[in-house]
Simulated scan of single mutants.
Amino acid sequence: MKTRARTANLIKEFFSSSHYAVVGASNNPTKYGNKVLKWYISNNRPVTPINPNERLIEGLECVPNLSSLISNLNHADVSVSVITPPKITKTILEEAKKLGIKKVWLQPGAEDTECQDFANQAGIDLLSGGPCVLVDGPRL
Rank of each mutant, 00 (worst) to 15 (best):
P86F: 00
Y20L: 03
K12A: 15
A76L: 15
K97G: 12
V104T: 01
L69E: 07
L106I: 02
V80L: 03
P49Q: 01
P29A: 03
I57N: 04
A122K: 04
E54L: 12
G129V: 02
D112Q: 11
A21K: 04
S67Y: 06
N120L: 15
N74F: 08
G130I: 00
S16R: 13
G123S: 06
R139L: 13
L56M: 14
L37Y: 05
A110T: 10
W39G: 08
V63T: 07
D125Y: 15
T91M: 12
G33K: 04
K2A: 13
K97Q: 15
N28M: 07
N72P: 10
M1G: 15
Y32K: 09
P29L: 02
L66A: 02
L56F: 12
R6W: 08
E13H: 15
I101T: 07
G129F: 07
Y40M: 03
P46T: 10
I124Y: 01
V78N: 01
A122V: 07
S128V: 09
N72W: 13
L93N: 04
L69Q: 07
L66K: 01
G137T: 00
L126V: 02
T30S: 12
E54A: 13
I57L: 09
T3S: 11
Q116H: 15
A5H: 10
I83R: 09
I11Q: 09
I41H: 05
A25H: 05
Y20V: 03
G123R: 08
I124L: 07
N9Y: 13
L106E: 00
G129N: 04
P52Y: 06
K2V: 15
G130Q: 06
V104R: 09
N9M: 11
V47K: 04
N51E: 04
V82H: 03
L60V: 05
S17K: 13
V133Y: 05
N9W: 11
A119F: 10
V135P: 01
G59K: 00
V78Q: 05
